[in-house]
């Protein structure tokens, strides 16, 4: 008689332990705008997804370490923005209703069909808590793929369309660009196929037309999301060298910028409207990047790597 009770107690402890083990992570707590990564399973009704009735989504079933890894990888893509990526449902509930979205990360999406995920474009600002979905069975349960797919779906909820590939006549070759245009780099657009190369936000032609240029970062930060960028150190001087800066910046009049880096980092350079000007890798020591002579008077430099990340505004 004692054994079954013990077994029941152990079962209860184990089940409640799984819930408690979901790490409560926040990438940028000061931000009101919030993306909630829901690994715990969910019951969804009353949304556009509910054509066939209530949807009961299983929990992702990942270990805390895997959840933390996926959260970190997703958060890295939003490091520039005034946006909190959280795994804490309470943070999501407190977020402004017109500046939040929930990404349900769950094994199966049989109610929808064979896809790695789906979302309603622009739903971040709808205010009705329409969730987006990532189906992990279609991503081989690979944490890196899941992070890329989740970031892609977050991009859709923030109003982004796919980055597409067109030929010189404007005929669409592929709705999802895999970075084929950039044969000299190993990068792909996050809003294209972000799985097999280093993926990042990009400026490119969107799926709405060959003449439609989509700057992912400008759209994320701007209207109607009104997320904006994180505020970091600002200097009105040409030389910027805050003592803790991993990358020191020296602007040049010719349109190039000299950077003194303490380590190996990836960098991205934006104009003040959030348009991506250039991106690449910084090596330890001096690096020179071209900002272009037509760039705005205010630029934002973002860098990130294994040893940390940061961003700075540069006044030219």
């Amino acid at each position: 008689m004692k054994i079954p009770i013990l077994q029941i107690m152990l079962f209860v402890i184990t089940v409640s332990g799984i819930k408690a083990q979901t790490p409560l992570l926040n990438s940028y707590p000061p931000a009101a705008a919030t993306v909630y990564l829901d690994f715990d399973g969910a019951t969804v009704e009353g949304t556009l997804w509910n054509e066939q009735g209530k949807i009961i989504a299983e929990s992702a079933g990942f270990s805390p370490a895997t959840i933390a890894y996926i959260h970190k990888k997703i958060a890295e893509h939003f490091i520039l923005f005034n946006l909190n990526i959280t795994t804490d449902p309470a943070v999501y509930e407190r977020a402004p209703i017109h500046q939040r979205t929930r990404i349900i990360i769950t094994p199966k999406g049989s109610w929808y069909g064979p896809a790695p995920g789906v979302s309603a474009v622009g739903s971040f600002v709808w205010g009705d808590d329409t969730p987006a979905w990532v189906f992990t069975d279609h991503l081989s349960n690979n944490p890196l793929f899941i992070a890329a797919a989740a970031t892609h779906q977050i991009g859709h909820t923030l109003g982004l369309q796919h980055q597409s590939l067109y030929d010189s006549y404007g005929i669409m070759i592929s709705e999802l660009s895999g970075g084929e245009n950039n044969i000299f780099s190993n990068e792909a657009p996050l809003m294209g196929i972000p799985f097999y190369k280093t993926a990042d936000w990009s400026n490119g032609t969107s799926s709405t037309g060959a003449r439609d240029f989509q700057s992912d970062t400008a759209l994320i930060a701007g209207e109607p999301n009104e997320i904006g960028y994180r505020r970091k150190s600002v200097s009105s001087e040409t030389h910027i060298s805050s003592p803790d800066a991993a990358v020191k910046v020296q602007t040049q009049l010719s349109g190039s910028i000299d950077l003194n880096s303490t380590g190996d980092y990836n960098y991205r350079l934006f104009d003040i409207s959030g348009r991506l000007l250039t991106q690449g890798n910084l090596k330890k020591g001096w690096n020179q990047i071209q900002a272009g002579s037509t760039a705005n008077a205010v630029l934002v430099l973002q860098w990130y790597g294994e040893t940390g990340s940061g961003s700075q505004k540069i006044l030219r």
């Binding site: 009353g46 949304t47 556009l48 209703i97 009705d128």
Partner: peptide, 14 residues
């Protein structure tokens, strides 16, 4: 099919 109220500010109809 469904009517949802989110606090006092949002009502959603399906």
């Amino acid at each position: 099919q469904n009517r949802m109220e989110k606090g006092l500010s949002v009502t959603t109809l399906l």
